[in-house]
Design a protein around this nucleic acid. Sequence first.
DNA 1: CGACTATGATTGTCGGACAATCCGACCTAA
DNA 2: TTAGGTCGGATTGTCCGACAATCATAGTCG
Lengths: 254, 254
Amino acid sequence: MSEVAEKFARITPVPAYQMVAEAIEREILSGRLRPGDPIGTEAQLVRQFGVNRSTVREGIRLLEQSGMVQRDSSRRLAVGLPHYDQLATRASRALVLHQVTFRELWEATMALSLATIDLAVDRATDDEMRALDANIDATEAAMDDPAAVAAYDTEFHLLLEKTGRNRVLEMAREPSNMLIYPTTHVAVQGTVEGARRLVEAHRMLVQALRTRDKEMARLWTRRHLNDWRKGFEKAGLDLDQPVDLVTASQATTS
Amino acid sequence: MSEVAEKFARITPVPAYQMVAEAIEREILSGRLRPGDPIGTEAQLVRQFGVNRSTVREGIRLLEQSGMVQRDSSRRLAVGLPHYDQLATRASRALVLHQVTFRELWEATMALSLATIDLAVDRATDDEMRALDANIDATEAAMDDPAAVAAYDTEFHLLLEKTGRNRVLEMAREPSNMLIYPTTHVAVQGTVEGARRLVEAHRMLVQALRTRDKEMARLWTRRHLNDWRKGFEKAGLDLDQPVDLVTASQATTS
DNA sequence: CGACTATGATTGTCGGACAATCCGACCTAA
DNA sequence: TTAGGTCGGATTGTCCGACAATCATAGTCG
């Protein structure tokens, strides 16, 4: 808000490779290039931009990692639809570097899960609820294997998110998901009781979806996440410790 | 979960420049390189990795855009703390490319704002409430300028987010913020009444913070966002239209 | 002690080169 | 006709060498 009127704008020399990246990005965002469309070959870009191939290549690399451009079959470059994971991977790593604590992670997950479940209660279809049931059955069958339980738990919550049918919320959750879900493994490991309570919570959540009972859904969401927290602490971990990739296992699926 | 046992794993040749990027990233995430530390010069990296300088440079570009490495003063490379905006810019563009609708955006913002306000009610300090008051006064003084009102509104909500003191939630909100805040301009433009209601809502929100009244805070958050929605529709825009950068103005501050 | 300068280091950009791979057209045999 | 093989051109990944512009640093001068 405090913008002093200055005589001269700051001069910031922009390297050519960056301008190449920005030019391509503009084309994509303006809609002139659509996902799937091939970007020209490097030789074509060299001609169009009038810069060296090395420069073009550096520019392309800037866009490549975020998924804005992808190498399709063979290695030709095409406009890509950046998928959530790619960005979420970066984002979750940023959270780690910022040393956010597990408490912040837990709080945010609580809030986001409640938002998700609200939408899911309104929108769950029979098919989706059947899929959730199937997931719970599978979880129950694997209750003595913490890693499997954690994997099924992740899948359960991803199904729940899809049920909410809101991609903005889905994407907002992804980074924290990548950090917190792997720790379920640890949180459940301590007691066999943990896995049992997890399955029960999932069952009650689906029942709440069936009866469209938002209050019940919220209640069990809270319980479920409180259980996670208790398990986490029982495992001897500190909620106020910064999230690290060791504890949060593999959030590194680049 | 449905993993068919296949005879052979997929063969995915990894280019050298990508391996360079991954190697550097590993060093950073493991903590051996910390934010601010200088990465070696290109010549050093060439020696260490045993590849050509062009290859090293391409690898660096992969990390540069997400803010994992930054050029400090001069142009030497150092480990960077990726700031939210950088990632959020990418993320918001991804949302645009995925053609999410304003309805999804509005829904998600509603859920996230409620989560934020809950935390803010618990944690707001006197200083923070004074800052919010000052912002509202400024808004009131500029009520006939929709652009200024929109800018102050954005600032207000950012202050509110800081008050929540949860960086995970803060970062989760950033991408949708970048898309929805610019539209406030449009939503307020229609009627002078719009700006007045906006200021009132802000006042009531701060009052709710002062009295630690969570219900009141939630109520006014809902009203505030419903107002935005009404203004949006009154401006002749369709909630179910995909978010585009034209309507959402400048979400393009790379 | 501070301002200035020369020197070396570093980055950004360029040009050219070559191997590996991929695409597509063409060809051959059943 | 079609499945499979061959071949040439196009494209990418990587390398090499080079040079101007800029920055850091130390050394010099006032």
